[in-house]
Nucleic acid binder design. Structure first.
Length: 596
RNA sequence: GGUCCGGUAGCUCAGUUGGAUAGAGCAUCAGCCUUCUAAGCUGAGGGUCAUUGGUUCGAAUCCAAUCCGGAUCACCA
């Protein structure tokens, strides 16, 4: 049990004994004691003062004395300042905690609790390569999935691939017009980049045609509709929907190129999925529920045949769910897919990692699903994240300011290599080891940078800051880990590994105390990260742990400790710190190097 | 215009179920490598927590209004 909850229940019991009143957890707070005061944890008494009709000082004194007397193994001293009761934890409690956890490497991992959760993330279009925004999405999704798993849930990672629609046809038309049969193989290009180029070529050509038409006297709207390349594209979309063989074949060939490219990127960044949904398979799914809803009068039809739902009672307006020509729209497919997910996988919860620009869409989806009487409406959860902006403003594909994912990864890894060389560390490694190290450092820096901010918030991507290896970065944390490994290796060489049997530690130094107390908070931290679905909580924790350990590291020697007892204690602290860093970083998708 | 999100140090961000003198990192300045990896450590300066009012023992945190920024309100996905 975590210290805060232990103290909470001790205080509740004590108050019951002392004053005969039953308090609950919500009645008063347990905080960590601020560094400028003596103590480890603080009970805030103000809230109790009123009901107990006592002065804060007296209440603090009485409660403090009672706790000290009746929980002597837990508390060693107390002091009262204003309405704050500061308590100090006994050394025996701290060291036994260390021993217990040292032998149990799970750090509060919870047993399976049988919640089945699906996390959907990534969700790319197949007409262009992944970019920085996708990376934030993927890292958040993967991390949240792993965090939920670590907290005892059964998690299914999925992606929905948007593999159909007008945007894919654009790339296809441009390829037909300009490629002369070129392929990714023939041009030595990654498939997603190859296809993306034709998407760009489409837009160039389209723009030119529109301009020409405008010069011939057409309005902008007319020109955009009548541009020959656009007409061709729309015809292709119709052909695709009617299943015309040559169109379908080109479509699957080009998508195949893109998937190969995506897979390479996913593999490199360590992202994985248990299942992939393809929109081309699911886009018709919602229609049946629309017909059903019509029968039940939940939906209504307008004169032109289009089908709508009235959400005005929810503060929204009327939403279209089926076009006049009977084809489905975005929301229609999502209704179908939502149901499919819950029914095929028997989910307790379905999480969608989608940008916050779709908050409205997801709200509408939930309401429609609810109105259609599907029981899982409340278990749909939109994990929304803010857009990634550049220091120069927003990313816009038309203006060429999109940061390509593969380019960015290459650059991060290259900077990691350069930096390592400059520090003169290269000579300690083989070529193979260096290659692995650079990936670990470069990808680690990038993931940490994108995950250290609360997902819900918009964030600004600063290229210089992102490739920094100092301060609040993945490298900083990795470095602390590598230094510990170095100590452990030296200790092992002298056959002096930590032995936790029958040791009595006394006189903990302030930094040793702080570290043990901080390590103890890890299990709370991952629980919080899970309930908030927020990896940044772990990033912050793991950084602060590394920082604290670094202070300890320069202040106290482990191998040349004052005596054997101290050495064992510090080895145990070091091992636990390393294990928790490794585990915490793992939950962020960041690997640790044994040396760096 | 309606709805939603945000505004904390020069910059990027923590801190918000109300608690003690608001914290990090970067940047700036000053120190620390014969001693477990200096990708590190120690210290200094830097704040009207957007503004105003309210709630109370106590407000960055809750409420109201205002200002500023963003998203969204498609027979696009």
């Amino acid at each position: 049990m975590a210290f805060t909850t232990t103290i909470q229940s001790a205080a509740i019991e004590s108050l019951q004994e002392l004053y005969g009143l039953q308090f609950s957890e919500k009645d008063f707070q347990i905080n960590e004691t601020k560094p400028e005061f003596t103590g480890d944890y603080t009970i805030v008494l103000f809230a109790l003062v009123k009901t107990l009709k006592k002065s804060p000082e007296n209440l603090g004194k009485e409660l403090g004395e009672y706790l000290l007397k009746n929980y002597a193994d837990l508390f060693s001293s107390f002091n009262v300042i204003k309405g704050f009761l500061n308590l100090q934890i006994t050394e025996s409690e701290l060291t036994s905690l260390l021993e217990k956890n040292y032998n149990n490497k799970l750090f509060g991992k919870k047993p399976a609790n049988n919640k089945k959760v699906m996390v959907e993330y990534s969700s790319p279009n197949t007409n262009k390569p992944l970019h920085l925004g996708h990376l934030r999405n993927i890292f958040i999704g993967w991390s949240v999935a792993e965090i939920l798993k670590f907290n005892g849930n059964e998690v299914i990672k999925t992606a929905i691939v948007n593999d159909r629609g007008i945007h894919i046809c654009k790339s296809m038309i441009a390829w037909q017009m300009f490629a002369n049969g070129a392929t990714p193989e023939s041009t030595q290009q990654k498939g997603d980049h190859f296809v993306g180029e034709y998407y760009v070529k489409f837009n160039d050509k389209y723009k030119k045609e529109v301009e020409e038409l405008i010069q011939q006297g057409k309005t902008k709207e007319e020109a955009e509709k009548e541009a020959p390349i656009m007409k061709k594209t729309q015809q292709m979309l119709l052909d695709w929907e009617q299943g015309k063989p040559d169109v379908k074949e080109l479509w699957s060939t080009m998508n195949g190129w893109v998937y190969k490219g995506f897979d390479a990127t996913y593999h490199r960044i360590g992202s994985d999925f248990d299942h992939t949904f393809y929109e081309s398979n699911t886009y018709l799914l919602g229609k049946d529920f629309v017909y059903e809803g019509l029968k039940k009068n939940i939906l209504f039809k307008k004169e032109d045949g289009s089908v709508w739902i009235d959400l005005t009672d929810k503060g929204l307006d009327e939403k279209l769910v089926l076009r006049g020509d009977g084809t489905s729209v975005y929301i229609t497919q999502d209704i179908g897919l939502a149901k499919l997910k819950f029914e095929d996988y028997h989910l307790d919860k379905s999480i969608y990692v989608i940008g916050d620009e779709q908050l409205y869409h997801m709200k509408v989806l939930k309401e429609i699903v609810r109105k259609l009487g599907m029981p899982f409406a409340d278990n749909i959860f939109h994990l929304s994240y803010g857009m990634v902006e550049l220091t120069t403003g927003k990313m816009k594909s038309r203006e060429g300011t999109v940061v390509d994912a593969d380019d960015l990864i290459d650059e991060m890894v290259a900077v990691a290599a350069k930096h390592t060389e400059e520090l003169g560390k290269v000579k300690d490694f083989t070529v193979e080891e260096l290659k692995v190290l650079y990936e670990t450092l470069g990808l680690g820096a990038m993931k940490f940078y994108l995950l250290r901010v609360d997902p819900k918030k918009r964030m600004i991507f600063n290229p210089d800051e992102s490739i920094d290896f100092h301060g609040f970065t993945g490298s900083f944390v990795q470095y602390a880990y590598a230094r510990i490994q170095s100590i452990l290796k030296k200790a092992d060489d002298g056959k002096e590994s930590a032995n936790s049997e029958h040791l009595t530690f006394s006189k903990l130094l302030p930094l040793e105390r702080q570290l043990i107390l901080f390590l103890e908070k890890y299990s709370n931290t991952i629980e919080e990260a899970a309930s908030e679905m927020n990896p940044s909580i772990i990033a912050n924790y793991v950084f602060n742990l590394a920082k604290l350990y670094n202070s300890f590291y320069v202040e106290h020697s482990v191998i040349n400790a004052e005596n054997e007892e101290k050495k064992q204690l510090r080895l145990m602290i070091s091992v636990m710190t390393a294990n928790i860093i490794k585990n915490g970083l793992y939950l962020l998708g960041v690997k640790v190097p044994e040396r760096m």
